[in-house]
Amino acid sequence: MTAASPETVELTGLQPSRDDLLGDVLKGLAASPKRLPSKYFYDRRGSELFEEITRQPEYYLTRVELALIGQCAAQVAAAVGPRAHVVEYGSGSGRKTRLLLDALEDPVAYTPVEISRSALVGSVQRLDQEFGPVQMLPVLGDFTQRIPLPEPERQARRVLVFFPGSTLGNLTDAESVRLLSAMRETMGAEGAALIGIDLQKSPALIEAAYNDAAGVTAAFTLNLLARLNRELGADFDLDAFRHRAVYVPEAGRIETFIDSQRAQNVTVQGRAFGFAAGEAMQVEYSHKYTDEGFAALAARAGLRVVHGWNDPRDWFGLRLLQPA
């Protein structure tokens, strides 16, 4: 089978529009405290920076999860069974996907759902070249919204939703339950979901992962403002804002902010928003889980944990869920 080119990759386009972006930004800047949705981090430059983050020495998550998937892939494949239609939320570069598809028995199709066009096309090209018999059915869209699945040419025995990277942790509890409930609908009564979760551990270790010494995470965070300047005609002065990520033990999560370094006004589409010196704008959560907490979260969405795997240090876990 010939590998797909950027011109021949067929995408189901459900990505947020410019009006969606503008509406979310205006709503977030008018809120108190101010906030911006983390899903808009991933323009082309943001996706490139995130891949660079995953290679920083402090950022253990990707490194540990890749090793864990490699170690337990055969067990996952045995639990899932043959002829799965793999649906991945937030597919990124596809490094983890390669390990999963390689382990599964006769996977029928692969549907990555990704908000970044460049990341989606790049990963589909690479995977199509390596897994020719697996039908590639990419969807360019926001996985936090309901996604109608493309129908594969070969009939699948079950749908497997793949959600690695502990990306679920970027949502609030209420948002997580809504997304898990949508997953349950997507997978159907016979389906399953394989979810990566970052586990609670030393706060210093966790906090360092989001404040790397090279400043890549800071550049990634501030790139959101650069995107708003470019796409919405905003006038954020990137030198007047700073990245800050702190671990909040009582909430069990990293909270990431963009802090205003001085009193200033920012305009977006003619609307002015004032920032006080030191004012924090919330841009991301990164929840860290316990087994009990994650199982309770899944149960609220009508799902149950049927298998679980951790790395040897219990830093990161994979959980296989099925409808309760």
Rank of each mutant, 00 (worst) to 15 (best):
S5T: 15
P16Q: 10
R18S: 13
D20I: 01
V25T: 11
K27M: 10
A31Q: 08
R35K: 15
S38A: 15
Y40V: 01
F41A: 09
F41Y: 15
S47R: 08
L49A: 08
E51T: 12
I53F: 01
Q56T: 15
E58R: 12
T62H: 14
T62A: 14
R63E: 12
R63T: 12
V64D: 13
A67H: 07
G70C: 04
G70A: 09
C72V: 15
V76N: 05
A77K: 09
H85L: 01
H85P: 04
E88A: 06
G90H: 02
G90S: 05
G92N: 14
L100Q: 05
Y110M: 13
P112T: 10
P112V: 09
P112D: 09
P112M: 09
S116D: 08
S118P: 00
S123C: 15
Q129T: 13
E130M: 10
E130F: 02
E130G: 02
G132S: 15
V134S: 04
Q135K: 06
L137W: 03
F143C: 10
R154K: 12
Q155S: 03
A156P: 05
R157W: 04
R157H: 10
R157T: 07
L160F: 03
L160H: 02
G165S: 13
S166F: 07
N170P: 05
L180G: 05
A182P: 01
T186E: 04
E190Y: 05
A193E: 02
G196H: 07
I197Y: 00
I197S: 06
D198C: 01
D198P: 01
S202Y: 00
S202C: 02
S202T: 08
A204F: 05
A204M: 09
L205H: 07
N211S: 14
D212Y: 13
A213I: 13
A219F: 03
F220Q: 04
L222R: 10
L224V: 07
A226R: 11
R227H: 11
E231F: 05
F241M: 04
P249Q: 11
G252A: 04
F257W: 10
F257I: 00
N265A: 15
G270M: 08
R271F: 07
F275E: 11
A277L: 01
Q282V: 00
Q282G: 00
Y285P: 01
S286K: 03
K288C: 02
T290Y: 06
T290R: 12
D291Y: 03
G293P: 02
A296D: 13
A298R: 03
A299W: 03
A301K: 10
G302R: 07
G302D: 06
H307M: 08
H307S: 11
G308C: 11
N310C: 14
D311I: 13
D311L: 12
P312Q: 05
R313G: 04
D314A: 09
G317P: 08
L321A: 02
Q322F: 03
